[in-house]
Design a protein around this nucleic acid. Structure first.
Lengths: 221, 221
DNA sequence: CGTTATACAAGACGTCTGTCTTGTTGTAAA
DNA sequence: TTTACAACAAGACAGACGTCTTGTATAACG
């Protein structure tokens, strides 16, 4: 049997194989967000997707393939959401939207972070996941940096702020904040998140840490 | 058989049951750091600890019990290391030591973070782990805040900086940085970490973002 | 129409899992 | 010396797992 690309193929073409693929991926990320990576199995995603094991195996040769696809999809979801939110905006407006779509304001984004932590851990074991996480990280970093460049050029943020360094710290802070919100109920409500985002943006505008107070001091730990 | 506390017990007293417990816990965290949570099983930690399954089950009734104990131990390890490092120091010195012992400068601390991410994910599923993570988080937060209070009183950091808010952001940034270093080889070397810690501390001293440059601009992404 | 590859379903199998259970050994109080 | 229990070891087992395999239906081409 020679299975090299033979001319003339005549398969059964489904209405939408791509949609089914995504449906399965979504089911998988749902399982991870709700029950954790340990609960993720070919059988459990089949149940969650309302299909048979066979289908899952049909679209993903491996459990690993499903893992990697889910990770990629989770990262792509954020990018798409930001893209439609940002549109033609730029500078500080774009920056704020990019950050706001990162913070777990909604259950969707909250789930996104739960999945992200899961894959953060998977990256330790799976090189493909590690690389994907890196690419995603640097993608967001560059976008934020570009926003800040435009914002600074437009005078929307303080002139003295060194962008490369500050944008990195900014992203680190966002990651820390979002990660923390996963295990901290207090950080999962809208008000605290709003206050913190306002703090960060306010700081960027002046570049002065003294401006950080921003009507916060309600929170007691 | 009445097994209520009968007066007069006469057991076999081992030289050091507590040490064996810790030995097993260390083996477990080693497995998690090296092979991930998925590879953690009663059998795998028994192998790693060089003992029998029975012994592991003897000290931990459940796999969950082992999980929780490992998490607690990982958190306690950082606290102990900081305690001996800080000693009687206070203020900015203490703060710097606390942060330095958080950053993955050594393989030990790097492993600590790998384990931390694992349990961060576990917290989504296991309430006990979530609570432990929270306690740990707020413990570190309060310690840092106290350091900063003393530092500001001593004039070691800028007077205008609002401490409660800034200390939280500082911790978030540290978490983001350390988390990122897990999936980013570049962030795992000493030089980049040094530069970033210097940046952060330098910023605290002046409270001015313009001071952030700190001889960095080597890094290109 | 027959051919062929795809969309999908499910049986079978060997492995690994956590836990229950039944051990054996050694020590210290009675 | 007997006794009772902790320290430790390992057999047994039911369930879940990933994957290999074999199956049927269907749609597009020759």
């Amino acid at each position: 049997m020679d299975s090299t690309t033979k001319e003339g193929a005549f398969p059964r073409v489904s209405d939408s194989t791509q949609e089914r693929r995504e449906h399965i991926i979504q089911a998988a990320t749902g399982v991870i967000a709700r029950e954790g990576l340990a609960a993720l199995s070919v059988r459990s995603v089949a149940t969650a997707a309302g299909c048979s094991r066979g289908l899952v195996e049909h679209y993903f040769r491996n459990k690993n393939a499903l893992l990697v696809a889910s990770n990629d999809w989770a990262n792509a979801t954020y990018l798409k959401r930001v893209q439609t939110a940002v549109g033609k905006k730029s500078g500080l407006q774009a920056l704020e939207l990019r950050l706001r779509n990162l913070i777990p304001y909604t259950d969707t984004i909250y789930d996104e972070w739960k999945v992200r932590v899961a894959f953060w851990h998977q990256g330790v074991t799976l090189p493909l996941v590690e690389e994907a996480n890196n690419r995603s990280f640097y993608g967001v970093y560059h976008a934020i940096l570009e926003d800040m460049r435009q914002a600074q050029a437009a005078g929307e943020i303080a002139a003295g702020i060194p962008l490369r360094v500050t944008s990195e710290l900014l992203l680190m802070t966002m990651i820390g904040l979002c990660m923390s919100s996963i295990n901290d109920t207090k950080l999962r409500r809208k008000a605290p998140l709003d206050r913190r985002l306002a703090m960060i943006l306010g700081f960027l505008k002046t570049g002065d840490a003294a401006a950080l107070e921003v009507g916060d001091p309600e929170t007691e730990y």
